[in-house]
């Protein structure tokens, strides 16, 4: 860290380059954990398969243990009864980790305005990207994925 003539704290050239490089590496090696509970899962599968092919974005290998994953895809309605399980899964993931709310039920609860549904998973875990839609089309999912990559690229990288 240095301080320039105007008194602003600046990160050095080398640190910012390292950050960019790690970000570039991370955004193209997303290991996702799909937490699929409902009909959005079909759209998730459509996105993951060859026609739309999320492998183009380096996210082609879903891990079926949260301990090996970077990105938690929450796909489908989360009920109050399932909420502790989701929190448990999130807490098992190693940092750095990101969360994608896939579909309107995970974003806001959607039309399940009732006693059983969590009204948006951001009530229980932090969320990075919201992909609305009921269910979202694969194009929407891909846009969400690219926004997530942008976020990963530009953030401060914890090592």
């Amino acid at each position: 860290m240095e301080i320039d003539t105007k008194g602003n704290m600046q990160t050095g050239f080398f640190t910012s380059r390292i950050d960019k490089m790690i970000g570039w590496a991370r955004k193209y090696s997303i290991f996702q954990y799909p937490f699929v509970t409902a009909c959005c899962g079909m759209e998730y599968m459509a996105t993951a398969c060859a026609h739309y092919d999320i492998d183009r974005f380096g996210a082609g290998l879903p891990r079926f243990s949260p301990r090996q994953a970077d990105v938690l895809f929450v796909v489908g309605t989360i009920s109050q009864k399932l909420a502790p399980v989701l929190v448990n899964v999130y807490e098992q993931m190693c940092a750095p980790k990101w969360v994608v709310a896939f579909g309107v039920c995970t974003c806001t609860g959607g039309f399940y305005d009732d006693y059983a549904t969590v009204r948006g998973i951001d009530h229980i875990i932090p969320v990075d990207i919201y992909i609305p839609g009921c269910p979202p089309r694969p194009e929407t999912v891909l846009q969400g994925l690219m926004l997530l990559q942008e976020k990963i690229q530009n953030q401060r990288q914890e090592v």
């Binding site: 109050q80 009864k81 502790p84 399980v85 448990n88 305005d113 006693y115 059983a116």
Partner: peptide, 27 residues
Amino acid sequence: LMYPEFEGHPLRKDYPIQKRQPRVGPK
């Protein structure tokens, strides 16, 4: 169907439609 911490009985007509339940943490 509901978990033990749930408050009230949801199919009663006087169950408030906007009622939010307390968050249940991981066991």
